Computed example of a mutant assay.
Amino acid sequence: MRWLTDDSTGAVKLLQQALGMYRNLGDRHGEANALWDLGQVRWLKGDNAKAADLAMQALDVYRTLGNHHGKANALRDLGAVRRVTGDVTGAAELAEQTLDVYHTLGNHHGEANALRSLGQVRRLEGDYVAAAELAELALGMYRTLGNHHGEASTLRELGVVRRLEGNYARAAQLAEQAIGMYRTLGNRQGEASTLHDLGVVRTKGRSYCQTLWI
């Protein structure tokens, strides 16, 4: 697809054409999928308001059709938009709904992703205990599933939580594990971001130790 090759403008035009045709044909499944894909493209372009609107439209159609997988995916995307736009309460509600649907469907990959997302929201709320518990649950599921990308991302997230708790030694250990996995996977962006995290941990830890000696 064009949005996977960075031709987001071309992708939007094609998806809008497809959406119009699906609506003319009365194909509600096609309509919902086109709305969802359009929302994904808008998200990648940074148009959060439009991405949220399209995810809501897709969600409504999926609910009408009784398409629970589509519903879960749309809830997940809508929650992600709410999180990055600062609507932490809305993001938490949507993440919980997403988790429930994936769990009911027996979709373990989706469930693990939802646990990690909910943990991120709890971290933003300042509830580090819940954030750590959710990240640990997600980490266990990713390992069981053999999902190394999810495992690396969750190790990084858990490291951030431990740093915010002031547990700098554990935060550094988790960041180092995540860096090792990202390197093995060839994920340069993940590696760079976690190296940054580790640098922050080292700085915070050093400052903390110096404070103890004052």
Rank of each mutant, 00 (worst) to 15 (best):
M1R: 11
R2Y: 15
L4C: 10
T5V: 08
D7E: 13
T9W: 05
G10S: 12
K13V: 09
L14R: 13
Q17S: 15
A18S: 12
L19K: 07
L19R: 02
G20Q: 08
Y22R: 12
Y22I: 06
R23L: 08
H29T: 07
E31S: 14
A34K: 10
D37F: 02
L38S: 02
Q40K: 07
Q40I: 07
L44E: 13
K45I: 09
K45D: 06
N48L: 06
N48A: 12
A49Q: 15
K50Y: 02
K50N: 06
A55R: 02
M56Y: 01
Q57E: 14
Q57M: 15
A58F: 06
L59H: 10
D60W: 05
N67A: 08
G70I: 01
L75D: 04
R76N: 04
D77A: 10
V81R: 09
R82K: 14
T85L: 04
T85D: 07
D87G: 05
T89W: 02
T89I: 06
A92Y: 01
E93W: 07
A95C: 11
A95L: 07
E96R: 09
Q97G: 02
L99D: 00
D100E: 13
H103K: 11
T104D: 10
T104G: 01
N107A: 10
H108D: 14
G110A: 08
G110M: 06
E111Y: 08
A112P: 07
N113G: 15
A114S: 12
S117F: 05
L118D: 01
Q120S: 15
Q120T: 05
V121T: 04
R123V: 01
L124W: 09
E125V: 11
G126D: 09
D127I: 05
A130I: 12
A131S: 05
A132P: 03
L134S: 03
A135H: 10
E136C: 04
G140N: 09
G140Y: 03
N147I: 11
H149R: 10
G150M: 06
A152L: 02
S153W: 00
T154P: 03
L155C: 03
L155P: 00
R156E: 08
R156T: 04
E157I: 00
L158A: 07
V161K: 06
R163E: 02
L164P: 00
L164C: 04
L164T: 02
E165P: 01
E165D: 11
E165T: 07
R170E: 11
A171K: 13
A171W: 14
A178M: 08
A178G: 03
G180V: 15
Y182T: 00
T184Q: 05
L185N: 12
L185S: 03
G186W: 12
N187R: 08
R188E: 08
A192W: 06
A192Q: 09
S193N: 10
T194R: 01
H196C: 11
L198K: 11
T203A: 07
G205E: 03
C209Y: 07
C209H: 05
Q210C: 15
Q210T: 15
L212R: 13
L212H: 12
